[in-house]
Simulated assay, not measured.
Amino acid sequence: MAKVLVIGGTRFFGKHLVEKLVQQGHDVTIATRGQHDNPFDERVHHTILDRTNSSELREAFEETVYDIVYDNICYTPKEAMELCAILNDHTTRLIFTSTMSVYEADGVAKREEDFNAMNYIYDLIPSQQHSYAEGKRQAEAVFEDYANFPVVAVRFPIVMGDDDYTSRLSYYVEHIEQGEAIEFVNLDAEMSFILADEAAEFLYWAGFANIEGPYNATANGKISMRTLIQTIEQVVGKKAIIVEGASPYSIPASWYMTNAKATEAGFTFTQLTDWLKPLIEKIAK
């Protein structure tokens, strides 16, 4: 049984991860802001804190040693630095939820070496707020420099699921159902995706596997926005009204990555085409 801390674990794939950890008999603590109910009741320890408040973070965890820490809500290099200062000598390994956004959308299949966090410049006191992508890049760089424990940076594409609180896929399903326009700049752009359950399975696996460093985690295959919209049209029985503009999946060029490194390390990914249409059908209902 491992002693595990999950920072952020009451929604979406973080919730699925905690459920998996609990089912496998691990001693789990979740740390959240308390804005959402604890769905696990007495099966986990629950600490309420502000992730961005370093003194709260230190007070809660500096005296506890964890075998594995999962950080699903680190978005800046400053947050990464503060976590290293607290967890150095207090954990065996960290699984950091990063993102495909560390890569540029340039039509080329991305491999882990296409973004190297080592020697990447970071700014702990930025003059303006980091973008999501830049915050994740710099956080990875800080963990490279300051963590004295193994870190796995899990780079996810957009995560899909019927319980996605961002409602990105639902946006398209609902707009097409209701005859409302949806926006794209390039319908032929292709993207990677992963299902929430699979994202949780990968995080769990990464916690116990003998791996370290960056790992792309995505379902096998990619899909063009044109094919995605056509699939939704088939499910809802209506034709999409498409205009030029910005929307959750509107990208100028193909943006996808290979999972070869993780596959070689022993994780078996699903096929995107096996679950995408059933997911759309579930959302449409």
Rank of each mutant, 00 (worst) to 15 (best):
M81A: 07
Q128D: 13
N38K: 01
N38G: 09
C84V: 05
S101A: 15
N88W: 05
N119Y: 12
L57Y: 13
G107R: 04
H46V: 01
T76W: 03
N116L: 07
F61C: 12
D106K: 05
L83Y: 04
I68M: 03
E62R: 06
S101N: 12
F115A: 07
N116T: 11
V108T: 07
P126I: 03
I95M: 05
L57T: 09
S131K: 10
Y66L: 10
V102D: 08
Y103P: 12
Y122N: 13
S127Q: 13
Q128F: 00
I86K: 02
S127I: 04
H36Y: 05
T92W: 04
Q129T: 13
V69E: 10
E56R: 07
I121V: 13
F40L: 08
I121R: 15
Y66N: 11
Y75H: 11
V65I: 08
I95N: 10
S55C: 00
Y120S: 10
V108I: 14
A85M: 14
N38C: 06
S55Y: 05
V108N: 07
L87N: 04
M81C: 10
R111S: 11
G107H: 01
M100S: 15
I68V: 12
S54E: 15
E62C: 07
V65R: 03
A85Y: 08
Q128C: 00
T97I: 05
A117T: 00
I86E: 00
S127N: 12
F40W: 02
V102H: 04
Y70T: 03
Y75W: 10
Y103V: 05
Y122K: 01
Y66D: 10
C84M: 08
C74A: 13
N119E: 14
T99N: 05
L94Q: 11
M81W: 03
L83G: 09
S98C: 10
I68E: 11
M81D: 14
T76M: 04
D50A: 05
E112V: 03
C84W: 01
E82G: 07
R43A: 15
Y103I: 00
E56H: 02
V102R: 09
I95R: 06
D106P: 09
V108D: 04
N38L: 08
I48R: 04
T91M: 12
N38E: 02
A60F: 04
N53S: 07
R111W: 01
F61L: 12
N119L: 08
L87K: 09
F96H: 05
E63Q: 15
R58A: 02
N88A: 10
M118W: 12
L94T: 06
T52H: 06
A60N: 08
V69P: 00
S54Q: 13
Y122L: 11
R58S: 15
C84R: 08
S98N: 07
A60C: 09
R111F: 08
R93E: 13
E104L: 07
N38T: 01
N116G: 06
E42S: 09
A85E: 14
F61K: 13
P77D: 06
H46E: 14
H36T: 14
D89H: 14
M118A: 13
T92E: 11
I68D: 12
F115T: 05
S54N: 11
R51G: 07
